[in-house]
Each structure stands twice: as C-alpha cells, then as structure tokens.
Design a protein around this nucleic acid. Sequence first.
DNA 1: GGCGATTGTTGACCTATATCAAGGATAAAT
DNA 2: ATTTATCCTTGATATAGGTCAACAATCGCC
Lengths: 247, 247
Amino acid sequence: MYTHSCSNCAMSDICLPLGLTENDIHKLEEIVKTTSVKHVGDTVVLQGDSFDKVYAVKSGMCKSFRVDEAGTEYVQSFHLPGELFGLDAIYAKHYGFSVEALDTSVLCEMDYNELQQLCSTVPALQNQLFNLLSRDLYTSHVSPIEHFDQTAEQKLAGFLHNLQTRFEVRGYSGSELYLSMSRRDIANHLGLAPETISRLLKRFQENQVISIDNRLVVINDPGKLDELVHCHALENSGRSVQISKVS
Amino acid sequence: MYTHSCSNCAMSDICLPLGLTENDIHKLEEIVKTTSVKHVGDTVVLQGDSFDKVYAVKSGMCKSFRVDEAGTEYVQSFHLPGELFGLDAIYAKHYGFSVEALDTSVLCEMDYNELQQLCSTVPALQNQLFNLLSRDLYTSHVSPIEHFDQTAEQKLAGFLHNLQTRFEVRGYSGSELYLSMSRRDIANHLGLAPETISRLLKRFQENQVISIDNRLVVINDPGKLDELVHCHALENSGRSVQISKVS
DNA sequence: GGCGATTGTTGACCTATATCAAGGATAAAT
DNA sequence: ATTTATCCTTGATATAGGTCAACAATCGCC
C-alpha cells in the first residue's frame, strides 16, 4: 500500500534488517510495503487462503489462530512489533492460521517470491531469515514441552513473564502491561478455561504479585512472578477452608 | 566420516535434495558426510553443545529430548529417515536438545556454514531448506493446539496414525509398526503417564483396533483408529461396571 | 446516555488422568 | 543359567482444573 523505510523503523534491530548493510536494507525496502491501519478485529490473513506474502508487525498486536472442522478456535500466538508471521505457510502454500488485529496495528508485507530472490543475492538477508526461522522453531519446540508438567498457575505466570520481557525488548514498559487480548484468548492460548484465568489473576492480585484493572496489569513483584513460573504455589484464597474430618 | 551419495539415497525425494538438479545434488554431496553406525542409546547431539552441524536421518530412528534444570527429561520428537534435525539451534548457536539413537541408525551430517554458503549459490537448495523449515514450523505450530482438547485416547491414536503415515511415505509397512521407543518415551512425548499408555494400548487391543506384542503393533482397523483421533470413545473395559445408586 | 451484547467473575460439582504402589515380563550382564 | 535392572502392566486413590450455571461489569452503538 505504502512504501516503507526499514532504516527508520524502530524495530529494525530485531526484525529482518538485522545484520544488513545500509545498501542491503535499501534493497529490502523495495519489496516491503506497509498496510493500511488495521483496527481491532480486522483480519490480516485468512486461514486457507493461498500463500503469497510474509508479514511483520510494525506497530500494535495481532493474534494467530486456527479454526478446526468443528468450528473450534485455537489461539496459536500473539505477535508483537518486529515479529514475522506467515512463514509456516511457505511449505503448505496455504495459510494454516488466520491472523487478526487485537489493537490498532500497522503491518509490513512482502511477497515471498521476491523475498526469496532477494535472499539469493543478499547472503546477510538469507542468513537473517534462517535465524528468524530457527528462533521460531526453537520457541515452538521448547514451549509446549515446558508446559507439559506445569500447573495452570505456572502457565499463566510464564505467559505474563514472557509478555513482560518481550515488551521490554521493544522498549515498552515491562511492568505495566496492557493485555490487548481477551481472557478467553489467553485461556485458549494456554490450553486452560477462561474461568481459570479469572481465578488465577485474582489470586496473583491477592498475593500482591500484580495489580489488575480490567485489561491493565501492573507487575508489582517481578521476582515473585518469576518464582511462580518455577514452582512456589500461592495460597488458594484469603479465607482458610475448614474440612471436617470423620475418623 | 564417509562421503555420501545423495543421488542413490532412498530418501532423496523427501530430504534436502528434493528439487535439485543432478549437478546441484553433486555440490550438496560434497558437504554431506555419513556418520559411523549408531546403536541404541548412542548420543548424536548433546544438549548445550555449541552448534555447527545440521543432521539428517539416513536409516533408523532417533529421539530429540531436553533435560531441564531439575533433571526432568522431555521427549520432543522422534526422527525418521529423511528428516532433518538441529535446525532449531541455528539462532541460539547451541543445541537446545539432545538427540540419541533409538535403533541402529546412520545419519548424514553437514556443516551449517558450508550449507549456508551453498544455499547462496544454489537457489533450489535455499528454496528447499526454507520449505523444510516452514514445514517443521507448521507442524510444531499445529500439533500442540490439536492436542489441547484431545483426550489421552485421541492423543495416542493420533500418535499411532502419524507414525503409520510417516512410515508409509518412506516405503515401509504402515500396518505393522515396530515402536523403537519405550512406553515411557511415548508417554513423555504426549504429555501423559506411562501407565496411561499401557492402559490405552490394552483398550485399543480389546476393541480390535490394533494387536500388540510388546513393541510390535499391528494396525488391524485403520478406519477405527482414524475415528479414535476424531472422537469415538471406546468402551473402558470388557467387563461392565455396576454402580450401586442410592436414591 | 441508556440498551443490548459481549466479556469477565464467582461458586458448586465432576471427571479424566496423574500418582502411588506392587507385581510380572523382558532384556542385558556376568 | 542366574542375576540384576529396566520396562511394562494392573489396581486403588487423589486432585487439578474443566464444565455448567448464574450474575456482574464493560463496551460499542444508536
């Protein structure tokens, strides 16, 4: 839609341009276009459409999700600025996931064929694309196995912790997180029930780990949050429960 | 260790050589070496070692697994002939997973730097590597979300079904599977308890879906197995359970 | 600025599967 | 061939978190 300058982009040092010379970045800019502004709920990519473009988030936040034959939605991930998506469709030639904006967002799009050709002539770009693919692959290999024997509490703490660090890397506040996604999306993404998310957020608040006002989370005790990921179970609730034992 | 001919390899049409000309394959062969024969339990890659090589399975079977700080093992995947591994370490520069032989196996290894350089001069190879990375990425995006609301029964049925098709693609029998991995490995890989695997395999056998003799599985009713993945719960056991209701 | 729709919260209950425990089969080691 | 160590199976029990249901808060919209 609009031509775009990667050189001036705040995300250039974590996105595709990383490691490229000024000259190579200019070549990249020639194949990158920014989209019109997307609003909450706007669809960027539709599951099943034939693959042609790879995307990067320039600003805002998106979610990738998949709908199965029964119509059930599964939230795969949340994309922050500087993150690519669509790469998992290169092989299949069709997008396996829909992507929609969770917030006012602008995206960068590039034709995959053009990108591939550019990679052949710009080794540093090929290199960076391999790097980003490898990182995504590593993340999607590690995170499910980490979740296996985690409790719901650990999963949610890990989710918040992960968001925190990703925000910080991008220069945003890591202690004050606005959750652009619904509880339902978080629950779905973590393989939990929305009710469980509510109950846990309440528990985290009761234990002074976070303060939460609707979708705004303030992380009051990052150390405690970190402990929660690696075990340390919290008290279930304020009032203690009396169980009458019959012996 | 030994130089290797990709041209004569039975896996050439599903591995890296796919889509390359005779001439390009020869260039690839120059950087591929086969390892000595690996035996059950032999380590091919050690988690934490610095990354330099990418591997492909030539024959046999391997498992990738990760050990956390607490010493708990997590089985990430089982690699069949024609499958690559180590690609998830490109970015991190260290292997995130150990890989060990589950069976008598031979592997192909290639230096990543050499592979990368070759990709710059052989666009078809670059293309194929992007394809394989994309396929791996797609698989590791889809499979965890498929597992989310699956029962233990569906997971195990899906696992057997998946093995069956992967064997068939490679020209092996899909109806007679030898499980080179232990029940413990299967359980771990699926996020279940070994006991659950035992109970379910028994149930599958009782319902004439499979026959099982130790590690050899014969799939008697592939249709029923397929149904099990998509729902159709089996009877819990042969004898029916009487529950006395107090009303 | 009020109304309907969506999103979030809380409570009571239930079930799938983990865990614990113990015995039996198989394979590796001497 | 006997021992030893895994691996596998089976049964009994416990529990984390899902499901159902009902209500409360928020948001988008006319």
